[in-house]
Simulated assay, not measured.
Amino acid sequence: MSKQLKRKALIAISSFTGDIYPGGHRTGLFFTEALHPYEVLTDAGFEVDLASETGTCGLDFNSLLPPFLAGSDKAVYDNPKHPFQVKLNSQLKKASDVKKEEYGVFFASAGHAALYDYPTAAALQATAADVWNRGGVVAAVCHGAAIMPGIIDAKTGKSIIEGRTVTGFTIEGEMIFAILDKLRADGVVPIVEAVTKVGAYYSSPMNAFDDYSISCGRVVTGVNPQSARSTAERCVRVFDTQQNA
């Protein structure tokens, strides 16, 4: 089945942009959590689209500060003509408008924003489920795993992560960002609780900001911004393994 899949990927982007951080700063897309997968996937020969549930997005305040944005990543951010910036700022698709049958990979980027909109992002979830049910790879980094409980396996009627091992942003990390109380007050569910509730096994790195990603069958997850690149690299390897099986 997977041999029929196109070498085409959809990177999901959160559309939520609320001011949740201390000081009234806003969340949104964590810039490098979409940029790094885009770079890895395009380097591996994938055609890549970006889409959010509403067709709109904003950028996470913290993602634009050092050490999270520096060097070549900042150069991309500062260059509005860079292909990634063009995709993000003028070609971002609305999830309900994409042709979901075209994709062999679904990759959920994040930012704290993902906790707010991914659990109810029906069109993004449907696209991911279509990729999964055709034998494709579904991946997420950091808070992107918030979409996983709602991606349903057509054969089981349950989440694709039931019985699988996944990772995502840690409770320790939420405490470092001084955001956990705000998340609780807003009624959003941290990743570890969201995934274990649907029967997944949560795997944590030694430290909250270690580069840590894992594969469990066709599900690939990474824990934080530092893991976005390695998560995408795993995603490519899993896809190619499926293609060559």
Rank of each mutant, 00 (worst) to 15 (best):
P80S: 07
F84G: 13
F84V: 12
K87I: 07
S90D: 11
S90V: 08
L92S: 13
K94N: 14
A95L: 03
S96H: 02
S96Q: 06
D97Y: 07
V98R: 05
K99C: 02
K100D: 04
E102N: 09
E102Y: 11
Y103A: 04
V105A: 02
F106Y: 02
A108P: 01
S109T: 15
S109R: 01
A110N: 15
A113G: 15
Y116F: 15
P119E: 05
A122D: 15
A123E: 12
L124G: 10
A126L: 13
T127R: 02
A128S: 07
A129Q: 12
W132D: 12
W132F: 11
W132L: 08
G135F: 08
G135T: 06
G135K: 09
G136L: 07
V137A: 05
V137D: 07
V138E: 02
V138T: 11
A139Q: 04
A139E: 01
A139G: 06
A140R: 02
H143R: 01
A145G: 10
A146C: 04
M148Q: 09
M148F: 09
P149S: 06
G150Q: 08
I151Q: 03
I151T: 04
I151D: 07
I152C: 06
K155I: 10
T156S: 15
G157N: 14
I160P: 03
E162Q: 14
E162Y: 04
G163I: 03
G163N: 15
G163S: 10
R164A: 10
T165N: 12
T165Q: 11
T165F: 01
G168V: 08
T170R: 01
E172C: 08
G173H: 01
G173A: 11
E174A: 01
E174M: 05
I176P: 11
A178C: 11
K182Y: 04
L183P: 05
R184E: 03
R184C: 07
R184K: 13
A185L: 10
D186W: 12
G187C: 10
V189N: 08
P190K: 04
I191H: 00
I191C: 01
E193K: 11
T196Y: 03
T196R: 04
K197L: 12
V198F: 05
G199N: 08
A200T: 06
Y202L: 11
Y202Q: 13
